[in-house]
């Protein structure tokens, strides 16, 4: 367990490598020299106080935000830049993005499409896969997240937890190498959080490579392969969850955990959610 940022491993089993990524919005430095690696089948949880840059980091990975410096590699291929060092064109970036799934805090389902159509949309119209096959796979995915009875409903009719499960099925549909979760349960009422975390936990145990920004410490403790703690745009500490939660090595991590995870279970998570909502 280290207190400083780890060096880049030259591991071939790495699905994601983030190297020296920095980003500012105007004069505000939101990300400062972020470096880490995610191995195949690993679940990485990114935790930290609000404003620490966690969401921005996630959005840089699939280039929804463009990093000012640094490089990002998905399975040895650089994201956003071609091998020659030029900016990727729309078409190349588009293909890259089908290999990275994303689950949004506010679900971001497409309101004019039914649940099934939402899941089928990207495989059909971005990847161009045959309709019958896409439909079959979409129905299977929706069954897997427990929403077979809602396939013809419109998103507006679903509860928050149901919408997020559709969001997860939608992210799985393009068969990505990696799925990014941007605070997937922060916008949910407390009683709906469990159904989403269950799906995510199952995904992690089935070997999906995941990067999860979350306040749900219980999930991080159970499902994470390692935890990254960020504060004010930098990685302050990383480590395996057993070690990080029991005995963090930096003061800032200790302070953070005192506020958010002092009581195992509901209390800490609710405090995090309250702070986030205000």
């Amino acid at each position: 367990m280290s207190a400083a940022t780890p060096t880049i491993e030259t591991a071939d089993g790495a699905v994601l490598r983030v190297a020296g990524v920095s980003k500012s919005f105007g004069t505000l430095q939101v990300l400062n020299d972020i470096t880490f690696t995610v191995a195949r089948g690993e679940t990485v949880c990114v935790v930290g106080p609000s404003g620490s840059g966690k969401s921005t980091l996630l959005r840089c990975i699939n280039w929804l935000e463009r990093p000012d410096s640094g490089r990002i590699f998905l399975e040895l291929e650089q994201v956003g830049m071609t091998a020659g060092g030029f900016l990727m064109r729309d078409k190349e970036l588009s293909l890259m993005r089908t290999r990275i799934g994303m689950v949004f805090q506010h679900f971001a389902l497409w309101p004019h499409l039914t649940v099934l159509q939402n899941v089928m949309e990207a495989p059909l119209h971005v990847q161009g896969r045959p309709k019958a096959q896409v439909r079959e796979e979409a129905e299977a995915l929706l069954a897997r997240v427990g929403l077979s009875d809602k396939i013809d409903a419109y998103p507006a009719r679903l509860s928050g937890g149901q919408k997020q499960r559709v969001g997860i099925a939608r992210a799985l549909a393009t068969k990505p190498a990696l799925i990014l979760f941007d605070e997937p349960t922060s916008a949910l009422d407390p009683e709906l959080v469990g159904e989403v975390l269950t799906v995510m936990r199952d995904l992690a145990h089935e070997g999906m490579t995941m990067v999860v920004v979350t306040h749900e410490m219980s999930f991080a403790r159970e499902a994470a392969g390692h935890v990254i703690f960020m504060d004010r745009g930098a990685i302050v500490e990383t480590g395996r969850p057993e070690e990080f939660f029991r005995a963090p090595s930096t003061d800032r991590a200790r302070q953070f955990l005192l506020r958010y995870a002092s009581t195992p279970g509901q209390g800490g998570e609710n405090a995090a959610r309250q702070e986030h909502r205000s």
Partner: peptide, 8 residues
């Protein structure tokens, strides 16, 4: 989300 899923 459309952009994130590769629509351009």
């Amino acid at each position: 989300a459309g952009i994130a899923f590769g629509f351009t």
